[in-house]
Simulated scan of single mutants.
Amino acid sequence: MNVTVIGSAGAVSPEERALRDLYVEHGPALYSYVLRMLGGDTHRAEDVLQETLLRCWTKRNVADREGMAVRPWMFRVARNLVIDAHRTRKARPSEISGNSWLADMCAEADDMERMLSSIVVQEALRSLTPAHREALRATIFADRTTQQAADVLGVPQGTVKSRVYYALRSLKSTLAESGPR
């Protein structure tokens, strides 16, 4: 005898009502359990909860659950679903999700761009006079003040300032000639 209950949503079968009651009774605890197993991934936890309830709907007679322990069975099904999903992901090659492939390509391009830029800068530095290269090494590359560089080089501070100025100006024009960077 299949009796339907008519509610605000229309006719509801005893199986549907039993499934809804099952969800209300066990859903929050099952969701928390699955969420912990999945390390806080709410989307996957919701999928596992839904699949567990779907299996409960199809495999068990939820309308006639008197005397049966449904909760342990549901937790076992959820646990098995999580384990199966984990094994499936481990067995398959890693998937490319979202824009990670784009970030990887950009990182490679950035490394390549840095390498090419360093080659161009090295060539531009070679085009400087030895005195200008020496002034840049003693100040900018050694992270020294012009006074400290003057002491190291044994020349007046004004000479160091002048050499650095003209060296940078020369580098700027050389790099401009080599193309946009």
Rank of each mutant, 00 (worst) to 15 (best):
G154F: 01
S94E: 13
A142T: 08
Y31S: 04
R20E: 11
K59G: 08
A124F: 00
T52H: 03
D47Q: 12
T58I: 02
E177T: 15
V160L: 01
M68T: 15
A45I: 00
A69K: 13
S127C: 09
A107T: 14
T88L: 12
Y165I: 05
L116Y: 12
S173T: 14
E51Q: 13
A18T: 03
R17V: 02
Q148P: 10
I6P: 09
E51W: 00
S32F: 07
E16D: 15
T139C: 09
V48N: 02
E123S: 12
R79N: 06
G7F: 04
S97Q: 12
V121K: 09
V62F: 00
V160Q: 00
L49C: 08
V5N: 11
T146V: 12
T145C: 07
L19V: 13
L175N: 05
M105W: 09
S162I: 07
P93K: 13
D64I: 04
V48T: 07
R163H: 11
T129A: 15
L128P: 03
G154Q: 06
W57Y: 15
L125S: 09
A107Q: 14
A109Q: 14
D143L: 14
G98D: 10
A124C: 11
D47L: 02
S127V: 04
N61T: 08
E15I: 01
Y33K: 02
C106Y: 11
L81A: 07
R181Y: 09
N80W: 11
R65Y: 02
A69E: 12
G27S: 10
F75I: 01
R44V: 05
S162G: 07
M37S: 11
M37D: 09
C106K: 14
Y166L: 09
H26C: 07
K59L: 07
A135Y: 03
S173H: 10
I96Q: 13
A78E: 02
L153T: 04
P93Q: 11
L136E: 01
V82D: 04
T139A: 08
R181E: 13
Q147L: 15
F141R: 13
